[in-house]
Amino acid sequence: MPRAAIDDNQRMNLRVPPEVKSRLTRAASLNHVDLTSFVTQAALREADAVIAAAEQIKLTEDSYKRVLALLEDPPEPNGKLLAAARAMPKPA
């Protein structure tokens, strides 16, 4: 059964096989940093990439121009859009 995460301190424990820890330690040594710094830096790079991918939409130049044109001159709402708008809860 998974344990609940506790955010009451700055410690994070990882369980990895000895060969994984050995590789990480070697890489950290080659980078002239301690194991904690090495793992943290790598994890932060990956976290930043995941967050950026989730928060950004990349468009081609043609798609970008189409989006801008639609924002400036939007089409008339169709039946599905009108039905969705009617189905939305009314603000209190």
Score class of each variant (00 low, 15 high):
residue 88 M to V: 12
residue 77 P to M: 08
residue 51 I to P: 00
residue 71 L to H: 12
residue 61 E to W: 06
residue 58 K to T: 01
residue 65 K to N: 09
residue 81 L to N: 07
residue 68 L to M: 09
residue 62 D to Y: 03
residue 67 V to R: 00
residue 88 M to W: 15
residue 56 Q to M: 03
residue 51 I to E: 01
residue 90 K to E: 02
residue 73 D to M: 09
residue 52 A to Q: 04
residue 65 K to R: 07
residue 60 T to N: 00
residue 87 A to N: 10
residue 61 E to N: 10
residue 82 L to I: 14
residue 62 D to F: 01
residue 90 K to I: 09
residue 63 S to W: 11
residue 57 I to Y: 06
residue 58 K to G: 02
residue 75 P to N: 12
residue 81 L to M: 14
residue 76 E to C: 12
residue 62 D to C: 01
residue 50 V to K: 06
residue 78 N to I: 08
residue 82 L to F: 10
residue 61 E to P: 04
residue 88 M to S: 14
residue 60 T to C: 03
residue 66 R to I: 02
residue 59 L to T: 02
residue 91 P to N: 11
residue 75 P to Q: 14
residue 75 P to F: 08
residue 63 S to T: 12
residue 54 A to T: 12
residue 90 K to D: 01
residue 76 E to R: 13
residue 73 D to W: 11
residue 51 I to V: 03
residue 82 L to M: 15
residue 87 A to S: 07
residue 55 E to Q: 10
residue 57 I to K: 00
residue 62 D to L: 01
residue 90 K to P: 00
residue 73 D to Q: 14
residue 76 E to N: 14
residue 69 A to V: 08
residue 50 V to D: 06
residue 54 A to S: 11
residue 73 D to L: 09
residue 68 L to G: 08
residue 90 K to R: 08
residue 71 L to I: 03
residue 78 N to L: 07
residue 63 S to F: 10
residue 57 I to T: 07
residue 74 P to M: 06
residue 64 Y to M: 15
residue 66 R to N: 00
residue 78 N to D: 06
residue 81 L to K: 12
residue 90 K to C: 03
residue 51 I to C: 04
residue 52 A to I: 01
residue 59 L to D: 01
residue 70 L to V: 08
residue 87 A to V: 02
residue 80 K to C: 13
residue 77 P to T: 07
residue 91 P to Y: 08
residue 79 G to M: 05
residue 81 L to D: 09
residue 68 L to H: 08
residue 84 A to N: 13
residue 77 P to Y: 07
residue 90 K to Q: 04
residue 55 E to I: 07
residue 72 E to V: 05
residue 72 E to F: 10
residue 58 K to Y: 00
residue 57 I to L: 05
residue 53 A to F: 05
residue 76 E to K: 15
residue 74 P to C: 03
residue 85 A to H: 14
residue 68 L to A: 10
residue 58 K to F: 00
residue 79 G to N: 05
residue 87 A to C: 06
residue 83 A to G: 08
residue 69 A to L: 14
residue 90 K to S: 03
residue 81 L to Q: 14
residue 53 A to K: 02
residue 78 N to R: 13
residue 73 D to K: 15
residue 86 R to L: 12
residue 67 V to F: 01
residue 64 Y to E: 14
residue 59 L to H: 00
residue 60 T to H: 00
residue 72 E to C: 09
residue 90 K to A: 05
residue 69 A to W: 03
residue 50 V to G: 05
residue 52 A to K: 08
residue 81 L to F: 12
residue 88 M to Y: 13
residue 55 E to H: 11
residue 68 L to K: 10
residue 86 R to Y: 13
residue 58 K to L: 02
residue 56 Q to R: 04
residue 67 V to S: 01
residue 83 A to T: 07
residue 63 S to L: 15
residue 74 P to R: 05
residue 69 A to G: 05
residue 80 K to M: 10
residue 73 D to I: 04
residue 67 V to P: 00
residue 58 K to N: 03
residue 62 D to G: 01
residue 91 P to I: 08
residue 90 K to F: 04
residue 60 T to M: 04
residue 57 I to G: 04
residue 89 P to W: 03
residue 51 I to M: 02
residue 63 S to C: 14
residue 62 D to S: 06
residue 82 L to V: 15
